[in-house]
């Protein structure tokens, strides 16, 4: 469903992604691991459509459509969701209002009827339970005054409400303590579905103890150097990244 071919991208004239090839099928969970500065976040941001990244070569197709030609909101309507590494605070914009606008824009795009306020509230309350998010958070400003852990929970809560077919989790585990990580991971596991692909970007193997990936990829210096199953993550944990780089160079 997602096909990345020879993707090159640069930020402020500096090439960060140097030919990524990756294919992600429906319902698969992929982990992309790599040291800091390897291009992990750039990859998620390019897929989600953030400004400031210039794609210099290659393509990203999603369900047969050219993803790179779409605006960020169009990608969202097509089912792409990004859980941010650093979710922004938007004081004054109600969390629930934002989600309702998002859900209804997507439904409209897909030719479905928009949800009314009552149906939507019911949906939201149900999904909040999934990540043990207190209902008081629903009526607050987006991420306003949330702790680091609460922000990450709010991201997964939003994923639950928006029901994407492709979820990119950008370092969703970083900055979380064990209890918070367990809650977030439980939420993600409950959201696994045959028609929903999940891409986790992380540099900690710890996350994979809680969310078991089908595939693990090592991203270093803008390229995927090695792919394998979850045992690769364990090997990275014990041996670090250097051997992968050496192996690739050889």
């Amino acid at each position: 469903m997602l096909k990345i071919e020879n993707l090159h991208a640069s930020v402020a004239g500096k090439e960060i992604l140097k030919g990524i090839n990756l294919e992600i099928g429906a319902g698969e969970v992929h982990a992309i691991m790599g040291p800091n500065g390897s291009g992990k976040s750039t990859l998620s941001n390019v897929i989600a459509g953030r400004d400031g990244y210039k794609v210099t070569a290659g393509s990203v197709t999603y369900n047969g459509k050219d993803l790179l030609a779409m605006e960020p909101e169009e990608r969202a309507w097509e089912g792409v969701f990004l859980a941010f590494q650093y979710p922004v605070e938007i004081p004054g914009v109600n969390n629930t209002y934002m989600l309702k606008a998002g859900v209804n824009a997507k439904r409209k795009h897909q030719g479905e009827q928009e949800l009314d306020a009552i149906d939507f509230m019911q949906l939201v309350k149900e999904k909040a339970k999934l990540v043990e998010l207190n209902e008081s958070f629903l009526s607050r400003g987006v991420n306003e005054g949330f702790s680091g852990g609460e922000k990450k929970r709010n991201e997964i809560f939003q994923m639950a409400v928006l029901e994407p077919s492709l979820a990119l989790l950008d370092e969703t585990d970083s900055g979380l303590d064990i209890d918070a990580l367990r809650i977030v991971a439980n939420g993600v596991n409950k959201l696994r579905r045959e028609d929903r692909s999940i891409v986790m970007v992380t540099h900690y193997q710890r996350l994979l103890d809680y969310i078991e990936p089908d595939f693990v990829h090592v991203l270093a210096d803008g390229q995927i150097l090695k792919s394998g199953d979850k045992s690769l993550a364990l090997e990275l944990e014990s041996r670090g990244y250097d051997w992968v780089k050496e192996e690739a160079a050889a």
């Binding site: 941010f84 934002m98 606008a101 824009a105």
Partner: peptide, 8 residues
């Protein structure tokens, strides 16, 4: 960007 990524 955050709002647009949510579909607005």
């Amino acid at each position: 960007f955050y709002l647009k990524s949510r579909g607005l």
